[in-house]
Simulated assay, not measured.
Amino acid sequence: MFDVLLEVDPTFQPVWDAFLDKWRDQIELPLYLALGDLARHAVGKLESGRTDELQQIFTVVERWLADGDELVQEAATIGLLEDLQNLNLHKSTSPDQLKQWLGPLAARRWIEAERFWSGQIAKA
Rank of each mutant, 00 (worst) to 15 (best):
D25M: 05
L33F: 09
D67H: 11
P30N: 14
N86H: 12
H90C: 01
L5W: 06
S94V: 07
K22A: 14
D17V: 05
T51M: 11
A39P: 03
T77G: 10
V60A: 12
R63N: 14
G44T: 06
H41N: 10
N88G: 11
L98P: 00
R63C: 09
W64V: 04
I111W: 13
K91P: 00
A106Y: 01
A42N: 06
L5A: 10
Q26R: 13
F19I: 02
W110F: 06
L54E: 05
L98C: 02
I57E: 13
D67L: 08
P14S: 00
D83V: 05
E82I: 12
S92L: 08
A76F: 01
D83S: 11
A124E: 11
L5G: 11
E28F: 09
G36T: 11
V61I: 15
R50D: 15
F2E: 00
L31C: 06
G103N: 05
G119P: 13
G119E: 14
G49K: 05
S48K: 07
L20C: 12
L102C: 13
D37S: 09
R109A: 09
L54H: 00
D21G: 05
P95K: 07
Q13I: 15
W117N: 09
L71W: 10
L31K: 10
G36V: 03
A39F: 04
N86Q: 04
G68S: 05
K22P: 07
L98F: 04
T51F: 04
N86S: 14
W64D: 11
K99I: 15
L105I: 12
Q73M: 04
T77K: 13
M1H: 12
Q120Y: 05
L87T: 13
E28A: 10
G36S: 12
R108D: 11
T93K: 02
T51Q: 14
W117H: 13
A107R: 12
S118A: 14
W110E: 01
A124L: 09
F19C: 01
W110N: 03
Q55H: 09
L29R: 07
W110K: 04
A66H: 07
W16Y: 15
L5Q: 07
L89F: 04
A42W: 02
F58K: 07
D37G: 03
K22D: 15
W117T: 05
L89V: 02
Q85T: 00
Q100M: 13
G49L: 10
P30H: 14
Q56F: 08
I111R: 15
A76E: 00
R109T: 02
A75G: 05
D17Y: 03
G44R: 00
Y32M: 07
L33Y: 08
V8W: 00
P10A: 01
N88F: 01
H90M: 00
K45F: 09
S48L: 09
